[in-house]
Design a protein around this nucleic acid. Structure first.
Lengths: 152, 152
DNA sequence: TCTAAATCCGATCGAGTCAGTAGGAAATTA
DNA sequence: TAATTTCCTACTGACTCGATCGGATTTAGA
């Protein structure tokens, strides 16, 4: 799992918008300055978020972007998919669309399990959760595993 | 999570070797034919597995590769790391090495949780499990979630 | 000792992705 | 009209990815 700069920036921009909920639109420039991100690049990222319907835009002076829905109803997985496609792919295929013969017969089940476990984290954590540092119980359990914070 | 051809091939080759446990070394050519993989490319993949100590090689006629440990003691996560590095990275950094300010303050916890959930699948499933189609109970639970097998 | 079968090693290739930049058209507010 | 801001297209340089080629080295067996 390689979380790209693109995806990282998208989540951070969404968090900044979540923090500004109800305060009118925020410009890309303001978002970029707030999180220290390259403005022009962020512009393209936010464009993806708009196409996906996660944010609304207003052009012109005093324009900018705002969340299309309340932060408590937008899940991190949606942000991922908007800017970098499906959560899990195997050689460009969806996990359940892979097919193997012989000894690898049961591999698709493993790939589906991988996707399912990612969903359990990313599709259950909302922007509001993340902003408050109040992650879902099941996600907190993952962090409390003995070696969760060290390399392996 | 993009599971590359490289990683897919590595797991399939390891499964083929697991199936041939105790039967002497298997050549890359035999592995490639068994799973329908590009031979020369697989050669490079298997080389990574050797450097990581997951397989042992024997050169010359009747040479080939064999598992370095029993299939029941090799976990899929090891194969992943051998051929494609750490399970989870954020802009090239380990999850716990990321740092943010302001609204993104709690992001590292999410990244660590993502890695932890991947480990729960990949570091708990052995080659023997996968070969037998007998996945760990906790992994099977993931597959039984309502929409595990459909796109989202 | 010769030969065939293998691993091993390095170089190369084309296509694509990735992070980031540049420039300007269109829209909106004041 | 002027300033602001989204929107769109194009481009860059560096890197990755899947795959191939050619050959050096090692080994088993006839």
């Amino acid at each position: 799992m390689d979380i790209s700069a693109r995806t990282d920036y998208a989540v951070r921009a969404m968090l900044a918008l979540a923090a500004a909920e109800g305060e009118g639109p925020v410009s890309v420039d303001a978002l970029a300055r707030a999180q220290g991100l390259p403005g022009k690049f962020l512009e393209a990222v936010v464009a993806d978020l708009r196409v996906a319907g996660l944010v609304q835009s207003r052009r012109g002076a005093h324009g900018g972007y705002a969340l299309a829905r309340p932060a408590a109803e937008i899940v991190v997985g949606e942000v991922f998919r908007a800017v970098s496609g499906p959560l899990a792919e195997v050689r460009g295929l969806r996990p359940q669309d892979t097919s193997y013969t012989g000894v690898a017969e049961h591999l698709p089940a493993l790939w589906v399990a991988v996707r399912s476990s990612l969903r359990d984290v990313l599709d259950r954590t909302t922007l509001a959760d993340l902003l408050a540092g109040d992650l879902p119980a099941h996600v907190r359990d993952l962090l409390e595993q003995p070696e969760a914070w060290v390399n392996r």
